[in-house]
Design a binder for these strands. Structure first.
Length: 1058
RNA sequence: GGGCGCUUAGCUCAGUUGGCAGAGCACCGCCAUUACACGGCGGGUGUCGCAGGUUCGAGUCCUGCAGCGCUCACCA
């Protein structure tokens, strides 16, 4: 079946589709729980469906694929779970933008219609993403593709929410959230990006109520003064005592507010503040307190019983309809202004009224929405939270850490608990990232999970408010009965009920009879929240005036369940997934980027441990490097500087892409990747002209001109993805490419041609199969030993997630050792030596297997030819036959195959060959010209040991003993291993002066080296303290150097005498 | 401000327990040689960011400084 003749060059586009088709047809990547082998699973970090994948994703997925393919070949029951993430706010924003281009606002549509539009977008990009993964060769189990809003994932989200709600780990809270006034949704802390902004410190005078003067507050946000409900001063401030009990009259508003004392307030340097504290440089000592619009002020307000007055609408305009009731006539003019206009207007007002004491320019960081990029407004609202600060979540995450990676001691109490499944099982690679994980949890705050969006998992809570009077709550008997029954039944009823007083949020204890509980709690307004395990229980409440929360959950809530939900938790049977959860959770490794440690890794660990009896979701976390563009900027979907991996596949092939990404994964250094544009007119690549975006990033200009013909223009990928330019027939889309992938392309071609050559050495159909053979020739023993070492190097690098070392080991094995030395060395002998052919066959076969995880296409394409060669196995190297390489066994080399003696002896052969080639190269001897070696003892024994290899590789016509008494006229002397050998027949006439110069150079070089050794050996400290074997080695190196010098000197003399 | 990382050949980067610096690309010379020009052979290239310290010996360990990047915190 093996093809005897291969094309002269490897053409990825001719072979990749066939490989993909074959893998799919034979379901090579599908795994079932009962399949043989130890379970090994990887969960893809599900990419957002907002856009196509870029090279950052390609890097991550290539590394995962290499891991999974190695595991599969080692015989594991390997399953790589693919899928995509709905990315609530990101996807909704993208679709909203697209609709706006057609003049449609989201709110013009019904929720159902809008969600359907997002669903269309999702379907399109999910398809693109899966195509990209396939094109890269990702060996995912495509039968198991999941989406975070699939029914099975939705079921998991519902169950997780219900369980956390029942256990008191989800609560509703009225507090300040990070509010995005454009998207009009709350954001989690990690969705806020800090950006440097040029602002001002404004110094505003607030008159004392008793007319005895004024105090001055310093603020960067003067517009919030409309919501001030107090002024704070540090009790240590010398002025505090005199102001005790006084109040100020808030300008514009007229509100009279207290002066409170709080040691949070920074004192100005002039009043004893710490000069090293930058705040003290700007502080006035008086802090305006706006509990509804500042997180710290909120805390101060709580400590001093200050009310919170919200003066803004959800769009961040000044509003009197969201909690502000004491609006004065003066203040009414500010209502309706945007926060920016209000800031200017407030400052102007203070200036005009002589109350603006000062204004200083001030550069500081302001939180911006990661999505809409406008400043985030601290905004008072009701949201749902996960109590991640609870020990059952945070503590469990910290206890999951491998003990040797924990820095210091775990938080009090955490370490004292009885050990539990999963404790200490989580390990980071590289280890330094454990610290990020630990520090994040030590400083974690409760997680706001509600989002005011339409795209996502709607929160499964039905609520209503009741007013309790002497007559009762007004709840119908039916409603009261249903809720009471649910409470009495506990979790089993599928309905969990929580009641709280609205005025202060105090919980009301409910033990069965709701009505009784409410009456006991006393008159007032109460909120009843019922969390339903299934929709039916919730919708049944709607008849009783309950309304489902319109908000959706933070996307990470569903992502946090990914390693469980994709395996059918909590009801695997319902989705035909029996056995999956227990087979593949915990997974082997999560491969992801640095910023995901806090966003996702943490949450997966907490959820998996909480909901699955302590199990960790993955035992290893591998943090890969970040792919940057040529300007050091991270490739990202939002910036639009990402390169589509299909572009690289088109110009270089998938294997080239993969090999180079593996090679670039170094563990410390991010990957910088200069990107070129491929001209669609000429096919040539060029560095694009760039523009600077409003955010200060450098990107390719949307439209470029052909360097050869400026009249011809094209649209860049950036232009198309950012919507700034639309490709047309006249102005087509230009793909990206990058010369960084040339190495991979060349390497694939090298492997192809090496195989092509090797195949040609065999008789038709191969050799007769027989018993295992042992090689006799040194070069064969060396090749097998080198192969055995390469297997070990690849094994170790893969197991340690040191991918660049893996690429290096493969490259050295195939190119340097196999092609440059072995194939060249065996050319004269292999056709007549069946035993050597057995070695060639084995090493070729084994190399294919070793290369496959990194370069699956070219190896799979060659595999039928390689497997088509019959022959005897080689003793010590087990290579079980397999129809497809993707399912073939990993090479197993017996320890004895690593033959140190053969490697050492062949190293001398190589050294002699290089010494001869060096002279040939410097003398410009034609490759075809065969020369004569006059060998003394050492060289002679090496030649003999090499059994023809030296002659072949150094281009020797003959080897004769060196006879000092009869030196040929054209003999060129060379110093080697402390002796001399001659080469004759190099050229027709010897250039004595040039030879002498060459020898002089060699002498100088060795003298320099010898001087170094002598210096060492004459250093008493070195002799006294260095290891004895090291000193011995130095002595021997010095002796060799001196012998070389002597030999070269003698050679030079004999040259002069010739 | 806290934490982490980086600074090595023109470029992109290795350098795992301290023992006189490496790869690929680029560059120069030779080569149509029947596996491969996506190739072969040969070549040179470095105050290992700066300044101290430990050591017989430092790219490697320690301290300080500078620059770059990421991350957390900070809207007085």
């Amino acid at each position: 079946m093996g093809e005897r003749t291969l094309a002269k060059a490897y053409s990825p586009r001719e072979h990749e589709p066939a490989c993909l088709e074959r893998w799919t047809r034979e379901r090579c990547f599908h795994a079932e729980p009962g399949d043989p082998g130890a379970p090994y699973s990887v969960f893809i970090p599900p990419p957002n469906v907002t856009a196509a994948l870029h090279l950052g994703h390609a890097l991550n997925n290539t590394l995962q694929d290499a891991l999974v393919r190695v595991a599969r070949m080692r015989g594991a029951n390997a399953m790589w779970m693919p899928g995509t993430d709905h990315a609530g706010i990101a996807t909704q924003t993208v679709v909203e933008k697209r609709l706006l281009q057609q003049g449609i606002r989201r709110t013009d549509l019904s929720r159902e219609t809008f969600v359907a539009k997002v669903q269309e977008w999702k379907d399109e990009y999910e398809g693109v993403i899966l195509d990209q993964l396939r094109a890269m060769g990702a060996s995912c189990d495509y039968d198991r593709v999941r989406f975070t809003m699939d029914p099975v994932c939705t079921a998991a989200v519902r169950e997780a929410f219900f369980r956390l709600f029942c256990d008191g780990l989800i609560y509703r809270g009225k507090r300040l959230v990070n509010w995005d006034p454009v998207s009009q949704t709350a954001l989690a802390d990690d969705e806020v990006e800090m950006e440097e902004v040029d602002g001002h410190f404004w110094y505003l005078r607030y008159p004392l109520e008793d007319g005895s003067g004024h105090i001055t507050v310093a603020t960067t946000r003067p517009e919030t003064m409309l919501g001030d409900t107090g002024v704070a001063v540090n009790p240590k401030d010398p002025r505090a005592a005199a102001l005790r009990g006084k109040r100020v009259r808030l300008p514009i508003v007229g509100r009279v507010i207290p002066i409170v004392e709080d040691d949070y307030v920074v004192m100005p340097v002039s009043r004893g503040g710490d000069p090293s504290d930058p705040k003290a440089q700007f502080a006035s000592g008086f802090l305006k307190v706006t509990p509804a619009h500042d997180a710290n002020d909120w805390d101060i307000g709580l400590r001093h019983g200050l009310v919170a007055i919200n003066v803004m609408a959800p769009d961040a305009s000044i509003s009197d309809r969201h909690g502000w009731t004491d609006v004065s006539d003066e203040a009414r003019g500010f209502v309706g202004m945007s926060r920016e206009d209000a800031r200017r207007a407030v400052v102007t007002w203070f200036r005009e009224h002589g109350l603006l004491e000062d204004a200083k320019p001030y550069r500081h960081s302001v939180g911006h929405s990661y999505r809409s990029h406008v400043p985030v407004e601290p905004y008072l609202s009701d949201q749902w939270y996960v109590r991640v600060t609870d020990d059952r979540l945070r503590g469990a995450a910290l206890r999951a850490m491998a003990p040797e990676q924990v820095e210091g001691a775990l938080p009090a109490g955490a370490a004292a608990l009885p050990a539990r499944a999963g404790d200490g099982e989580l390990r980071f690679f590289p280890p330094r990232y454990a610290r990020t994980f630990q520090q994040w949890h030590e400083g974690i705050r409760d997680w706001c999970i509600s989002r005011q969006l339409w795209w996502g998992h709607q929160i499964p809570v039905w609520s209503r408010t009741v007013s309790v009077t002497a007559q009762g709550s007004g709840l119908s008997a039916a409603a009261s009965g249903a809720l009471g029954a649910a409470v009495a039944a506990g979790d089993g009823a599928g309905l969990a009920v929580r009641v709280s007083r609205i005025s202060d949020g105090a919980p009301v204890r409910v033990e069965g009879d709701i009505e009784a509980a409410l009456r006991a709690a006393g008159p007032g307004d109460y909120a009843i929240h019922a969390c339903a395990r299934h929709d039916a229980a919730g919708t049944a409440l709607e008849a009783h005036g309950f309304v489902r929360d319109p908000d959706v959950l933070d996307t990470w809530f569903s992502s946090a369940l990914w390693p469980m939900s994709t395996l059918g938790w909590p009801e695997p049977d319902r989705f035909g997934m029996r056995g999956l959860l227990d087979t593949w959770n915990p997974s082997a490794v999560l491969s992801t980027a640095r910023e995901i440690i806090t966003l996702w890794v943490s949450r997966m660990v907490m959820m998996n441990r909480y909901l699955l009896g302590g199990r960790v979701p993955f035992r290893h976390v591998f943090i890969h490097s970040i792919v940057q563009d040529g300007y050091g900027q991270k490739m990202s979907k939002s910036l639009g500087n990402g390169v589509d991996p299909r572009d690289i596949i088109a110009t270089h092939g998938a294997d080239a892409l993969r090999f180079c990404l593996v090679q670039m994964s170094t563990g410390t250094q991010d990957v910088r990747l200069p990107v070129d544009v491929l001209c669609p007119f000429t096919g040539e690549s060029f560095a694009p002209k760039t523009v600077t975006t409003s955010s200060g990033h450098t990107v390719a200009a949307p439209i470029q001109s052909c360097p050869k013909d400026p009249a011809k223009r094209m649209v860049t990928a950036f232009g198309a993805s950012s919507g700034q330019a639309v490709p047309t027939d006249e102005m087509p889309l230009a793909r990206n490419t990058s010369a960084r992938f040339d190495i991979g392309r060349n390497f694939a071609n090298k492997l192809w041609n090496a195989t092509r050559f090797a195949l040609a050495q065999f008789p038709e159909g191969g050799d007769p199969a027989g018993v295992a053979v042992s090689p006799e020739r040194l070069v064969d023993r060396w090749m097998l030993a080198t192969f055995a070492r390469a297997v070990r190097a690849v094994d170790e690098s893969v197991d340690g997630y040191q991918f660049n070392a893996c690429a290096e080991a493969l490259y050295n094995l195939v190119w340097r050792d196999f092609c440059d030395w072995y194939l060249e060395a065996i050319k004269p002998t292999v056709k007549s030596d069946p035993r050597q052919r057995a070695v060639l066959r084995a090493v070729l076969d084994g190399s294919m297997r070793l290369m496959h995880p990194v370069m699956p296409f070219v190896t799979e394409a060659l595999w039928p030819s390689v497997q088509g060669i019959a022959g005897s196995p080689v003793d010590g190297l087990r290579l079980d036959p397999s129809a497809t390489l993707a399912r073939a066994a990993w090479p197993a080399a017996r320890p004895g195959l690593d033959d140190a003696d053969a490697i050492a002896r062949f190293a001398r052969v190589q050294a002699l060959v290089l010494a001869i080639r060096n002279v040939r190269g410097e003398r410009g001897v034609e490759v075809k010209r065969r020369i004569t070696l006059h060998a003394a003892a050492a060289a002679s024994s090496i030649v003999q040991d090499g059994a023809g290899v030296v002659e072949t590789l150094a281009g020797l016509a003959s080897v004769v003993p060196l006879d000092p008494s009869s030196r040929p006229a054209d003999a060129v002397p060379v110093a080697f291993e402390g002796e001399e050998f001659w080469l004759s027949g190099l050229v027709d006439a010897v250039d004595t002066a040039a030879e002498s110069q060459r020898l002089a150079k060699a002498i100088a070089d060795r003298e320099r080296v010898a001087a170094g050794y002598r210096a060492k050996l004459s250093n008493p400290g070195y002799l006294a303290k260095a290891k004895p074997e090291l000193i011995e080695e130095t002595r021997s190196l010095l002796a060799k150097a001196e012998a070389d010098i002597a030999a070269a000197r003698k050679a030079r003399e004999s040259l002069a005498g010739a």
